[in-house]
Structures are given as structure tokens and as C-alpha cells.
Simulated scan of single mutants.
Amino acid sequence: MKNYLYTLNRAIQIALPFVAFSAMSAQPTHPVDVRAFDIAGVKTGMSIEEARTAMEKNFGVSSNSITESKSLPSQVTTLITGTEQIMYLVYEKNGTRMQVSFEPRVPYDKNNPMAVSQITYEIPWTKDNESVMKDAALKKYGQVSSNSMYPLWCDKPLPGTGMGCAPDSVKLEMASTKLRMYDPVWTNARIKFMEDKNATKPQF
């Protein structure tokens, strides 16, 4: 009987750390609809003009204050749409910088050829700026999706550890004094279009 109790006690002692670790690992997650979020009024999926108008309104500037970069004739965007398209809109002043990146819509839409795929917003780093930025982000976007060093929101947080998001998640993340929102659906559609276009049957 003594041997049995000793063996049972040892088994419990060995198992307890693993039970505790499992309980600690099973952190709660909170999926959110990031496509409903905006940065300075800009949402993923917006057209070029919608994004430009939102930026003008947010910063109280005219369109002349927002620079644009167009695709080159050899770039995929031009190949898909048939014409050069605006790929980036940028507003920059006194260390504050916002960039809106676009991908071609697939299938091609002549009346609305480009869609916002990524938005970044950054202010100069100071310890106070980082603290204020974090507080403002939490106030605007609410409960984060998973545990992370910096606030992170996504529609597919990883289960179990509660850390990070699935690779195909629509994601909003903050690092230091920078916000980045990214919707991979537009990039994935462009990649698939080109893969299908370049698909070739070997003839050897």
C-alpha cells in the first residue's frame, strides 16, 4: 500500500506542471472584423478616389498634399488592367507618414480597377508618443484579438496559445508608433491570376 501511495504521489507531482502549462497555454482569443476598421478614414477594399478623399478629410488638406506613384508598363498591375494605375498614395508632414497601397481588382473592373490592400500610419517615435498611440488604438479598435507585445487585431487569431493570427488573416497591428492594416485577399487574387495566366503544359 505504501509503495502504491508513493508511486501515485510521484505521478501527480510529475503531471501537475504539464496540467498547469496546458491551462496557461489555452489563452482566449477574440476574432474581429478588421475590414470594418479604418486608419484615418481609409479602409481596405476602398477605391483610389475613396481613399484619397478620406485622407484629405482626415488631415484637412487638398489633393496636392497627397503624392501618388503609378505602376510601370512592365509591372503586373499594368499587365492586369491594361493601363498604368496608381499603386500608392502618400501623405507626409513633420514626421507623420501615411501610405495607402493598392492591388488590381481580379476580375478586372474597368470602372473601379484598384483596391486598397494595405494601410500604414506612423508618427515620430518618442516614449510618450508610443504610449499615446497605444492608448488611442485601444480606444478606437477595442479588445485585441490575441496576446502580443503590441496590440493586434485579426479575424483569425490562432487558437491555443492565443498568440498571433493565421497567415491569411485580415490584420491590424501596432508596433512602436506605427499602425499597419493588411488584407491579403487582394494580393492573393493577383498572385492566382498571374499563376493561372502563366500556367503552361510541358511539351517535351
Rank of each mutant, 00 (worst) to 15 (best):
T120Q: 11
N111I: 04
C154N: 04
L72I: 03
K2L: 11
T83A: 11
A189C: 07
P107C: 13
M55G: 04
A36T: 14
F37M: 13
E49Q: 15
S71Q: 10
E49F: 12
S63R: 14
N129D: 12
A51M: 07
P17K: 09
M181L: 13
L8H: 02
G45V: 08
D155R: 05
V32A: 06
R105Q: 12
K140F: 02
I14E: 07
P113F: 14
D168Q: 13
M55H: 04
R10S: 11
Q118V: 05
S63I: 05
A175F: 09
S69V: 14
V116M: 07
P159L: 06
N129A: 15
A115P: 01
I66M: 04
A51K: 05
S69W: 04
S176G: 09
T7N: 05
G160P: 10
L89D: 03
L8A: 12
K134G: 06
K201L: 12
G95I: 01
I119K: 00
A51N: 06
V144F: 02
R105A: 09
P151G: 01
M133N: 04
K156V: 13
G45H: 05
V61M: 09
S146R: 03
T7V: 11
D33P: 01
V42F: 07
T77W: 02
M163D: 04
L79E: 12
V90M: 10
D155H: 06
M24L: 15
Y141P: 05
D155N: 15
Y150V: 02
K201W: 12
S169C: 09
E56S: 13
M1K: 05
M149R: 08
A40P: 05
Y91S: 03
I39L: 06
P124S: 14
L172P: 01
T78V: 08
I39H: 02
L172F: 03
T78R: 08
T187N: 07
N147S: 13
V185W: 00
M163H: 11
I191H: 00
T81W: 03
P104I: 09
P113N: 14
A175Y: 07
A175K: 13
F37D: 11
F102E: 08
A166D: 14
P167L: 14
Y108D: 06
P159C: 06
K201Y: 09
L16E: 08
K171E: 10
D135Q: 15
Y108R: 13
T7S: 08
N188M: 10
I119V: 15
E68R: 15
R180P: 01
S101E: 15
M194R: 02
W125F: 15
Q85G: 05
P167E: 15
P159F: 09
A51Y: 02
V34S: 07
L179G: 09
V106N: 03
T53R: 14
F204A: 11
S117A: 14
E122Y: 00
Y150W: 14
L16Y: 05
I12N: 03
K2F: 09
L5S: 04
G95C: 04
K171R: 15
K127Q: 14
N9L: 15
A40C: 10
G164E: 03
S145Y: 02
T161P: 01
S131Y: 02
L158E: 09
K140W: 01
P124T: 07
P107G: 08
N94G: 02
A136R: 11
